[in-house]
């Protein structure tokens, strides 16, 4: 335990070392985060009127970003599946990046939901012993569970693998392989549950459509690996860590297949909605 805390402390120290470009980048991110914190402070005091939302459009960019980032997090599984199910050796080198990315975006997801709350001071109401959790009735409560669960899973897997690497020893399979397989299902579930968040609303005909979860997953499996490829390229250029072409080629193939499925689903959806002008698509017309 102590060793693990030392490990975390050393990571923290490590995060302060870097060249000038690294400092510039981190500084820029800090400035962005501080501006965001300032905006949020204003919003907290003045209410959500600062967002420009109205009763007519009550959800906006916060929820859109949340949904997108859930997709990116779910897409991390696209690195895990080839690495652990198909035993592609070259993916083992980069699978960690996928998991770290998942952690980062899940944290962003949770933050996006938090800033979207009208009363963030009452977030305890969502946490079972203190509040009243509407489970399993509310899909939002499912989302709270799956997102936090996914966060914990990835923290465990990535933390354990990094810790073993730090100690220069081989990870014990029993400690992380079950969680890896769990995380594969879990990743699918986070995006499915998020899709159900919308699909469950019968009063919104354009969302109330059985293809939405499938499309969410298909598009996430395009966007997520796409983002990973970009990240890999930056890592290759900017850092000493070497990533071969093989993982990128694998990801490219995954993207191609997922994109085909996504386009097919999109086409079916558009056809259903627009071939005949029913009320179902009235809001889209």
């Amino acid at each position: 335990m102590r060793a693990y805390l030392t490990f975390i402390w050393r990571i923290w120290l490590l995060s302060w070392t870097g060249n000038r470009r690294y400092y510039a980048w981190m500084g820029l991110l800090t400035v962005v985060a501080v501006i965001g914190a300032n905006a949020w402070a204003h919003q907290f005091v003045e209410g959500l009127q600062t967002t420009g939302l109205t009763n007519q459009v009550s959800w906006g960019a916060y929820i859109a970003n949340f949904t997108f980032l859930v997709g990116v997090a779910a897409a991390a599984v696209m690195l895990v599946i080839p690495a652990y199910i198909y035993k592609k050796e070259h993916m083992h080198e980069v699978v960690l990046f996928g998991e770290l990315m998942a952690i980062a975006v899940i944290v962003m997801c949770l933050l996006f939901v938090t800033v979207d709350l009208g009363r963030p001071d009452r977030f305890l109401h969502m946490i079972p012993p203190f509040g009243v959790f509407n489970f399993p009735g509310s899909i939002l409560s499912w989302d709270v569970i799956v997102l936090n669960g996914y966060l914990l899973l990835n923290l465990h897997i990535a933390g354990y693998l990094l810790y073993c690497r730090y100690h220069q020893r081989k990870p014990t399979k029993r400690f992380y392989i079950p969680f890896v397989f769990l995380s594969i299902f879990w990743a699918v579930s986070i995006h499915t549950v998020t899709a159900f968040l919308y699909v469950g609303l019968a009063g919104r005909p354009f969302w109330h459509h059985p293809l939405v979860p499938a499309r969410f997953l298909a598009s996430a499996f395009v966007a997520g690996p796409g983002l990973m490829i970009l990240a890999f390229q930056i890592i290759r250029k900017a850092m000493r860590f070497h990533i071969g072409d093989a993982p990128i080629v694998t990801l490219r193939m995954i993207m191609t297949v997922a994109m085909l499925i996504n386009m097919f689903l999109l086409g079916s959806e558009l056809f259903t909605e627009f071939y005949y002008p029913t009320q179902h698509a009235a809001s889209a017309h």
Binding site: G36, N38, A39, E46, N55
Partner: peptide
Amino acid sequence: VYPPRAAHQPKAAGAAQH
């Protein structure tokens, strides 16, 4: 009417987040 909220905004620096 739905108020044009963005129109009469306090000077909040990052308030244009949306």
